[in-house]
């Protein structure tokens, strides 16, 4: 075990974990405001990544425009998804609405394959090259950009939830939808906003991930699963905890990969399971 490799794995883990953290933030936004466990979250990530790659490679926009474009596209898809699929199911049980998001993920996957084809698409990284670490390992700028994005998102989200009317309305809905309705908040509209925001965060994760690993229409479900695991690991309903969960999962995965690459996913999931059993309310929530 050399320290150089350990540091590299740690930073790689943090970068991948940062992506998971972004997805888990999106999970949290929807889960808190509506109670829905969104199975289509990974598909929002995929739409963001593929959308940005299409804007860059297909339409020919510069990268600096295509990247935010992908995230905005994902946000639009999130809004349409809510209005078309979940709003009509307003008064139904939570289980039914959760199953509807499974249907939604099937539709989004098929639509993406129809529109953008089944081949993986690429995006160029934000900047070439990287930073040479003391151990001789090279840390690419893209990983650092992911970490910076996550670090920027957390205070932005905290500000959004605490200081804007929309964010406070979302918190009110999370606390007690009936009381929120009495205060003149429309849970329907707030839920639509939560889906939009959540899909935007997921889209951003997709945009940041695509230069590292490329993106194809069927990558969404695994990413959604990891984001879900991250959200639950940290503790549902606590955005910072979700970020910690994401980073922990990313590092765990990288080191599990070092031990035995054949059982990488198995070991990561087994670790998630063990953590769930010993800390059922999350790593941070007491």
């Amino acid at each position: 075990m050399t320290w150089g490799i350990a540091i590299l794995l740690l930073v790689k883990g943090l970068a991948v974990g940062g992506i998971y953290a972004l997805i888990s933030l999106g999970f949290n936004v929807i889960q808190r405001t509506t109670g829905i466990l969104n199975f289509a979250q990974g598909e929002f990530v995929m739409v963001g990544g593929l959308g940005a790659a299409w804007l860059w490679g297909g339409v020919g926009l510069p990268v600096a425009v295509a990247m935010p474009g992908g995230a905005v596209l994902a946000a639009g898809v999130g809004w349409v998804s809510y209005q078309a699929a979940l709003r009509p199911a307003g008064g139904t049980s939570l289980t039914t609405r959760i199953i509807i998001t499974i249907g939604l993920s099937i539709v989004l996957r098929a639509a993406a394959a129809l529109v953008w084809g089944t081949d993986p698409r690429q995006l160029p990284p934000l900047a070439e090259g990287g930073l040479t670490l003391p151990g001789g390992a090279v840390l690419d700028w893209q990983s650092l950009a992911v970490l910076a994005a996550v670090a920027a998102c957390m205070p932005a989200l905290a500000w959004f939830f605490r200081c804007t009317a929309t964010g406070r309305a979302m918190q009110a809905c999370a606390g007690d939808p009936d009381a929120a309705r009495l205060c003149g908040i429309r849970p329907d509209r707030v839920a639509a906003q939560a889906f939009t925001l959540s899909a935007f965060l997921a889209g951003m994760a997709g945009v940041l991930l695509t230069p590292m690993l490329s993106m194809s229409f069927d990558r969404g479900s695994m990413l959604g699963l990891k984001g879900f695991a991250a959200a639950i690991l940290g503790g549902v309903g606590h955005p910072v905890a979700g970020v910690v969960g994401g980073l922990a999962l990313g590092i765990l995965e990288q080191f599990a990969c070092w031990g035995s690459s054949v059982y990488k996913d198995t070991l990561a999931l087994a670790a998630v399971l063990v953590l769930l059993l010993i800390r059922p309310r999350g790593l941070l929530v007491r």
Binding site: A85, I102, G103, I106, V107, A110, A113
Partner: peptide, 11 residues
């Protein structure tokens, strides 16, 4: 297209 229709009908 089949997958798309399948998902839409399920929803």
């Amino acid at each position: 297209i089949e997958q798309l229709v399948y998902g839409l009908i399920l929803i």
